[in-house]
């Protein structure tokens, strides 16, 4: 007997009304698969052209246990999710779809995974994202829903895997603001990895992931404070913004550290041309 998806019962939290005009097509596909589920590898690839690729829209929303960005989800992604829920896709079937899918099918499956129970299949799919290094898949797994954060919190993946995924996210220079709930994954270990990557890049004369400063501020490792304060004087607007955000995120600013940060923020403030950064510097410049 094929393994059940993640070894847990299927979630049923995706409201079918979200499928809009694609709902009849989804119902037909489900009926076809209930009659012969060996058709799954044939039905799944056609979903984008049949259900449509237009974004669902509606921004970030909580649906069941998941938080997803419906501006990134397309109608076919929701059809895929609903279909896989309804037929209670097994681990083996889901992995087969991923391994033999094209780029778009894989992205569709990763988005759908937000609505499937956390478990071994989630871990396997996230492992494939880590291994294959495709930007679209990294975005589907880390940006279009909070799958990574939930998988890490649930213990579906260990901290080392979560850290390696976020390190690759940084390596691909993807924006932290799109990685839903990634701030929950901040840790000293991750900060150390990000800082080491930054140092390697700097030594090679290459650009550093701008969000490094913001992320290490949440869980500073040795050397992070100096990097953050130095970041306030960086020539790149994005780095200065990230450094200011990182300093504001410092988890326990002692009086001495707060005074030190306030001093450098105050020094920078009159010379800072960007209003959004100035606003953050003003907050940092008030140690109380």
């Amino acid at each position: 007997m094929a393994a059940r998806y993640g070894g847990r019962p299927m979630a049923t939290t995706l409201p079918p009304e979200l499928l809009g005009p694609a709902e009849p097509l989804a119902r037909d596909a489900i009926a076809e698969l209930r009659a012969d589920r060996s058709r799954l590898p044939v039905v799944f690839p056609g979903l984008p052209r049949k259900a449509g690729r237009e974004p669902v829209g509606g921004g970030c929303q909580a649906i069941g246990d998941a938080r997803v960005d419906l501006d990134a989800f397309r109608r076919c992604d929701l059809v895929a999710a609903w279909l896989l829920q309804e037929i209670a896709v097994t681990h083996d079937e889901a992995v087969d779809l991923f391994l033999h899918g094209d780029i778009e099918e894989r992205a569709m499956l990763l988005r759908a995974a937000n609505f499937l129970p956390l478990g071994d299949t989630t871990a396997r799919l996230l492992g494939e994202v880590l291994r294959t290094n495709v930007v679209l898949h990294m975005e589907a797994a880390l940006c279009d829903g909070d799958l990574l954060a939930r998988a890490a919190a649930h213990g579906t993946i260990d901290a080392e895997t979560a850290n390696r995924l976020l390190l690759k996210f940084a390596f691909l220079d993807l924006p932290l603001e799109r990685a839903l709930a990634a701030e929950r994954l901040a840790s000293v270990e991750l900060s150390t990895m990000l800082q080491d990557l930054a140092t390697e890049r700097e030594a090679a004369g290459r650009a550093v992931w701008r969000d490094t400063w913001q992320m290490v501020g949440r869980a500073p490792c040795p050397g992070a404070i100096a990097r953050l304060i130095g970041g306030l004087e960086h020539g790149d607007d994005g780095v200065r913004l990230s450094a200011a955000k990182g300093l504001l995120a410092l988890p326990d600013r002692t009086a001495g550290l707060a005074a030190e940060v306030a001093r450098y923020a105050g020094e920078r403030l009159p010379r800072e041309p960007r209003p959004v950064i100035r606003e953050l510097l003003q907050r940092l410049a008030q140690p109380a």
């Binding site: 590898p41 044939v42 039905v43 799944f44 690839p45 056609g46 094209d102 778009e104």
Partner: peptide, 9 residues
């Protein structure tokens, strides 16, 4: 072949 005949490209 049926699976590959349904691929988008």
């Amino acid at each position: 072949l049926p699976r590959y005949c349904e691929k988008d490209s």
